[in-house]
């Protein structure tokens, strides 16, 4: 170890690949977190098949589809923003990062209206209306709020991260040759998209 210190480099130490793999391993732990919830969902769906089917019909497939399109498109724009950065097209990258930010906001606004409508109808955990329903429906909506809520929390975190990336790009600390932070932000954002890819059909379409 002493020899390693003796030949310490004077240049900046960077390991972009190591940085990316660290991000990936973190994302895998996120999959484990959501995977556990999907397992709970699958078991209760099996046990309360009819109740889950009925409760699922109360969700708007249209709102779910719109949010799916919004997230898929935001995944495209963040991927393109990284490509633009690699090509040295900083302005284009900034425009694409900002577009991603707007899509994230659109997703959250849709989610806000969706949840408000549900809550104003008394459909929320612990409400009188909810407690009068069969167990299966209580479980469905409980999982709906926890899982889409945790997902929305990830969207909010992603939104903040992308905002920071925009700031970094403007300041110049992210550029053509040093943009691993932007790449990792993109990876996080794509994971948010992947989780929604599973959440959407399971809650809105087939249950």
């Amino acid at each position: 170890m002493a020899t390693e210190n003796a030949i310490a480099h004077h240049d900046e130490h960077r390991d972009d690949e190591g940085s990316r793999i660290g991000m990936w391993l973190f994302l895998v732990t996120e999959l484990l977190l959501f995977g556990g919830m999907f397992f709970v969902f699958a078991v209760y769906k099996y046990v309360h098949y009819d109740a889950f089917h009925l409760a699922s019909k109360e969700l708007s497939a249209l709102v779910g589809t719109i949010n799916t399109i919004v997230l898929l498109t935001s995944s495209l724009t963040i991927a393109l923003s990284i490509k633009a950065m690699e090509d040295g097209r900083k302005t284009l990258s900034l425009v694409l990062q900002s577009t991603t930010l707007v899509f994230a906001l659109v997703f959250l606004v849709n989610k806000y209206f969706e949840w408000s409508a549900k809550i104003s109808h008394g459909t929320y955990p612990g409400s009188e209306e909810m407690m009068s329903r069969p167990n299966g429906e209580i479980l469905f909506f409980g999982l709906y709020y926890v899982m889409t809520g945790l997902h929305a929390l990830h969207v909010i975190v992603g939104l903040i991260i992308i905002a920071v990336m925009i700031l970094f790009t403007v300041r110049g600390s992210i550029d053509r040759d040093r943009h691993v932070h932007l790449v990792n932000a993109g990876l996080y954002w794509h994971l948010v998209d992947v989780i929604w890819i599973f959440l959407f059909p399971l809650f809105y379409l087939i249950a």
């Binding site: 990936w24 391993l25 895998v28 999959l31 484990l32 995977g35 495209l76 794509h190």
Partner: peptide
């Protein structure tokens, strides 16, 4: 999304092995 948007396809072989092994165990 994982292979194209998240560039898994263009990462090194070792990189992919690490990621796929982790997903496999999940």
């Amino acid at each position: 999304v994982a292979t194209i948007f998240m560039h898994l396809k263009i990462e090194s072989r070792l990189f992919r092995v690490v990621v796929y092994a982790a997903i496999f165990f999940i």
